[in-house]
Design a protein around this nucleic acid. Structure first.
Length: 179
DNA sequence: CGTCAGATGATC
DNA sequence: ATCATCTGACGC
């Protein structure tokens, strides 16, 4: 899948899945609130939130309207608009540009007002179908120490086999082959 | 290589 | 107080 924004085109290389009920890593675990409302809404929209006061995180809402589910985009590789990306993140080279959800948010210049944006139509933030990966790996998600152990162990992080565009704290070597 | 603290702000 | 992170500093 591709993410398009202001002339920048990225191919998604790494994601994590979240849902509620059944997953205490999910933001929806304490119910529907102003912040996570988009997570409960109709699929195909963005769920954007600020993490640690610094990083804008991009999720694609997946569940049916009224159910909470989303995919966190953790890394991507550049397809077009490299000049713009470099200008937004001076000094960053290679994976440091786009590998990691916070870095990705900075590279895309995400803002909180993109929350609830419809993604599968023309707009300032858009998702399009790209070249499907040949093989995928999966393994545990990252940065969810607060969740129940059984949910921490769920293999719900996915990355394209062989890509170098994977978040630093969570390299491909920790993931199992899926197909 | 590794571990660690601090940044920083919306949210509950 | 908490937090789906990142960076730079330090120690080995």
């Amino acid at each position: 899948m591709l993410i398009c924004r202001e002339g920048v085109v990225l191919r998604i290389t790494e994601v994590e899945a979240y849902r509620w009920p059944g997953d205490t890593a999910c933001h929806a675990r304490h119910g529907r609130t102003a912040r996570n409302d988009a997570l409960w809404g109709p699929p195909g929209r963005a769920y954007v939130y600020l993490c640690y006061g610094l990083h804008h995180m991009l999720n694609l809402v997946t569940g049916r309207d009224g159910e909470a589910g989303a995919v966190l985009v953790r890394a991507a590789e550049p397809v077009a608009g490299l000049e713009t990306l470099r200008a937004r993140r001076p000094g960053a080279e290679g994976p440091a540009l786009l590998a990691g959800p916070g870095r990705l948010g900075a590279a895309l210049a995400l803002e909180l007002d993109l929350n609830r944006e419809r993604l599968f139509r023309r707009g300032s933030l858009e998702v399009r179908r790209g070249t499907p990966p040949e093989a995928i790996r999966c393994g545990p998600r990252i940065g969810i120490d607060y969740a129940e152990p059984a949910h921490r162990a769920l293999p719900w992080r996915f990355a394209i086999e062989g890509t170098r565009w994977v978040s630093r704290r969570a390299g491909l070597e920790h993931l199992d082959a899926v197909r």
